[in-house]
Design a protein around this nucleic acid. Structure first.
Length: 428
RNA sequence: GCGGUAUUGGUGAAGUGGUUAACACACCGGUUUGUGGCACCGGCACACGUGGGUUCGAUCCCCACAUACCGCCCCA
């Protein structure tokens, strides 16, 4: 093998791309029905865009960024997530302006990059479908976004999903809680796992969802962030919960749920799915939340934002589990040639069928008639037209219904001008 | 970044320190004349991830690297 794809990348072949298209199309339909519209931003951005938004100490920035210097000495990074670029575009294009209807709602889909060890459902180039809504702090918008995420998954017939929410509060909440947590954990420092000792100084919140068993025991009695919410944040969170309940959307509150990126505020949520595809353990398929300070951080006005991202690869693993049979579309017609002398007229017939909007193909490898029929069969052609010299002399060609085996002669003109009628006649 | 397992043709795979690397599927060709799905016959790995080493000799032993998968970190 001389060449192979870069580590952590994948080729999506035609048999798979059908599933991708299905997911993307479904997402688009759902999002558009909520009045979200597509935005496309660059796959790479200035490194600072991600450093600024995600937080310098975040793992994404400190060790997972796919970055490089271009020929103009610019520090560039392939986007590790979608939100930062969208916020940058929102501010740069002044979409916060009064001529825009608020909230400003967009969705996107495309590749993201993180330099890390590949695993199942986890690659260096992976794909996300995401949405963002700017310009409203209404808890109803939080509810709408979560409802939309759930609707998409159920439309994709994903089973066993669970919505988990939490609130990170506002800046003051974070500050107070951060202090309280450090105060609580410091006496246990010696008992914490190595990772958590390190996190105590850098990002104590992360200790909350440590997988280390002893860490979890310690964390069990730690203060909860929900007790530190400011009145405004608490009211917001309550309204979100009420809103979800009012719409009949089930959810769990997990006060230990945190985020790897620093920009989140107030509501954060994840939709987790338990599936054989993930060894029957829980896997987060959708994650999102509010980021009410980000727009300002990028130089825009003090404006709220909320969004979520879907891991497409993970979603597809779930789909493969449920309905693995995605049958390839059959070909409408295959044109068989009996000799080199009919190449041009056969091609004309073929093109007329294609121009009429039907899928059709022919042989390009000089196969014998038998071989051509065999390929027609493999392509699941519904009809086969055999073009030969004697037929052309009569201006009539045999067309065969491959399912029934019935073959009849039809005038060439009829095929060229109303193939639909010809097919209809033969389908009876 | 750390740890574990794996790597044989188009695919699924068997196999041994030493003559022709099983078998199956797929594919190609044929079974006389221009028609598919069946049957039969024939063909199809200068080669066993890459590079070194050990050995008289390695696909099979050792080392390194690459890639894949799993776990950790982290996350979608």
């Amino acid at each position: 093998m001389r060449y192979q794809k870069p580590k952590g990348t994948a080729d999506i072949l035609p048999s798979d791309s059908k599933k991708w298209q299905f997911v993307e199309q479904t997402a688009q339909d759902v999002f558009e029905s909520y009045n979200f519209h597509e935005i496309r931003t660059p796959i790479f951005e200035s490194y600072d865009v991600f450093e600024r938004s995600s937080g310098e100490s975040s793992d994404v920035v400190s060790k997972e960024m796919y970055d490089f210097y271009d020929k103009g000495e610019r520090h560039i990074a392939l986007r590790p997530e979608g939100t930062a670029g969208v916020v940058r575009a929102y501010v740069e294009n002044k979409l916060f302006g009064p001529e825009q209807v608020k909230p400003y709602k967009v969705y996107y889909h495309g590749p993201m990059f993180r330099y890390e060890r590949p695993q199942s459902g986890r690659q260096r180039q992976f794909h996300q479908i995401g949405v963002e809504a700017f310009g409203s702090t209404s808890p109803q918008l939080d509810v709408e976004v979560m409802a939309m995420a759930e609707q998409l998954l159920s439309k994709l017939q994903i089973n066993g999903m669970k919505l988990v929410i939490n609130s990170l509060g506002d800046a003051k909440t974070r500050e107070d809680y951060h202090q309280a947590l450090v105060d609580y954990l410091t006496p246990f420092e010696g008992e914490l796992s190595e990772d958590s000792k390190r996190r105590l100084g850098t990002n104590p919140l992360r200790i909350l969802d440590s997988k280390d068993q002893h860490d979890q025991e310690i964390v069990q009695n730690a203060p909860t962030i929900l007790d530190f919410l400011t009145p405004e944040s608490e009211a917001h969170f309550e309204a979100v919960k009420d809103g979800l309940s009012a719409l009949g959307i089930d959810f769990d509150v997990d006060h230990t749920m945190v985020r790897g990126l620093d920009y989140y505020t107030d509501t954060i949520f994840e939709i987790m799915v338990t599936s054989p595809a993930f060894n029957n353990s829980e896997m987060t398929v959708i994650a999102g939340g509010r980021y009410d300070g980000l727009v300002k951080e990028f130089g825009g006005p003090e404006e709220a934002g909320i969004g979520f991202g879907i891991g497409v690869e993970r979603l597809l693993l779930l789909l493969a589990q449920d309905n693995d049979e995605v049958t390839p579309a059959p070909l409408d017609c295959y044109v068989v040639k009996t000799s080199d002398n009919v190449t041009t007229p056969a091609f004309e017939i073929l093109q007329s069928i294609r121009r009429a909007g039907f899928s059709a193909d022919q042989d390009y490898l000089d196969r014998k008639v038998k071989g051509q029929f065999k390929n027609a069969d493999r392509l699941q052609a519904r009809f086969v037209i055999t073009v030969g010299e004697s037929e052309l002399a009569q201006q009539q060609v045999p067309i065969k219904n491959m399912a029934t085996g019935v073959q009849v002669d039809v005038p060439v003109e009829e095929i060229k001008h109303d193939f639909k009628a010809v097919m209809a006649k033969l389908s009876e």
